[in-house]
């Protein structure tokens, strides 16, 4: 590796409290590390509300958005985050790249690595694929969602959203409802909420719950009204409609009847319970439109705003690591 690489540390006085090379998942992070990222993100919320939203923290840095799966929201959010920090952001969408021509994930990683990016943001349909790629590159890697495994920035933005409304996560009762089986958002949130001292309930039909999920320390409910009792936060998950054709649940109608969030079921939760959804929503499938649009209860739009701030914090934290460009590949 070249010795001539410069490591820019824009704020050398700030403590380095996120000592990880990559952000591959929430599992394994400490409460302090999560708090550090949330505090940092909080500072970016204000910056994003100014007329001039741009800083220079990532000046000269290259951020590549490498998406092996369709995504508009997450990709845009990362792109904005990188640009607002003054970095050069490149989007690589894989439907147009050589993966389709048979190039392997590792070949793609090596190719991009040779372009000396500082941060790779990767979304991939296979669990573990982002960690595999991270082993092969010299830059920081952010997991933008891998299969059904983890989506750490989503959990962080959810946490930031809740913390700004409730002041803390400690002691809250959080219900995660819907397609837990296929959800990386659920897995990251289960981890994060518990690390930060919240209690987690899962509400879903048994066919949409992975086996032995109780071993992760959560309570499981199949009856939504019972599950929502006493909850402070109701997180709805997107149900992919291709999973509704009798394979996991019999029909949209039946699913909404038992697991769709409407005002009637919401009555079981605390009177001031807040509603979240990682988007994109299927209105009338997992969530009633009225509930989703209730400005007093629904945090859904706030989540999107927090998403940019959290991703700025993650990019900032990872590029603060001294010598990240010169470190050997691997964890």
């Amino acid at each position: 590796m070249s010795a001539a690489m410069t490591v820019v540390k824009p704020d050398p006085g700030a403590p380095l409290r996120f000592p990880h090379r990559h952000l591959l998942g929430i599992e394994g992070l400490s409460p302090d590390e999560i708090t550090f990222l949330l505090d940092l993100a909080d500072s970016y919320v204000q910056q994003n509300r100014e007329q001039d939203k741009k800083s220079t923290i990532l000046r000269g840095r290259t951020v590549i958005n490498l998406f092996f799966e369709n995504s508009t929201r997450t990709r845009t959010s990362f792109e904005l985050a990188g640009k607002r920090l003054g970095g050069d952001v490149i989007n690589m969408s894989v439907s147009t790249s050589s993966i389709k021509k048979g190039e392997t994930l590792i070949d793609t990683a090596m190719t991009l690595n040779a372009m000396h990016p500082d941060v790779l943001i990767v979304r991939h349909p296979d669990s573990g694929a982002v960690a595999l790629l991270a082993q092969k590159v010299n830059c920081a890697v952010v997991n933008g969602g891998d299969g059904s495994h983890e989506h750490p920035t989503q959990a962080l933005l959810d946490a930031l959203t809740i913390r700004r409304r409730r002041g803390k996560l400690q002691g809250l009762l959080v219900a995660i409802c819907g397609d837990i089986l296929h959800s990386r958002v659920a897995r990251s949130n289960i981890q994060l909420m518990q690390i930060m001292g919240a209690r987690v309930r899962l509400i879903a039909p048994p066919t949409l719950l992975p086996s032995a999920i109780q071993r992760l320390g959560v309570e499981v409910f199949h009856d939504m009204r019972k599950g929502l009792e006493g909850c402070d936060i109701v997180m709805m998950l997107r149900l992919q409609t291709e999973r509704m054709q009798g394979s996991f649940v019999p029909s949209i109608r039946e699913y909404f009847h038992f697991y769709g969030l409407d005002y009637d079921k919401l009555k079981s939760a605390k009177p001031d319970a807040l509603i979240m959804h990682p988007g994109p929503m299927n209105r009338g499938v997992e969530i009633d439109s009225e509930v989703a649009d209730d400005i007093d209860r629904s945090l859904i739009r706030e989540q999107v705003e927090m998403g940019v701030a959290v991703r700025m914090a993650v990019l900032d934290a990872l590029t603060r690591n001294p010598g990240q460009r010169n470190a050997p590949a691997g964890k």
């Binding site: 599992e27 669990s127 573990g128 891998d146 299969g147 059904s148 495994h149 983890e150 990386r184 897995r187 992975p210 086996s211 032995a212 999920i213 071993r215 992760l216």
Partner: peptide
């Protein structure tokens, strides 16, 4: 199938 598969998001 079990806890490890569930944690790893593998079926």
């Amino acid at each position: 199938e079990g806890e490890i598969a569930t944690r790893l998001g593998l079926s």
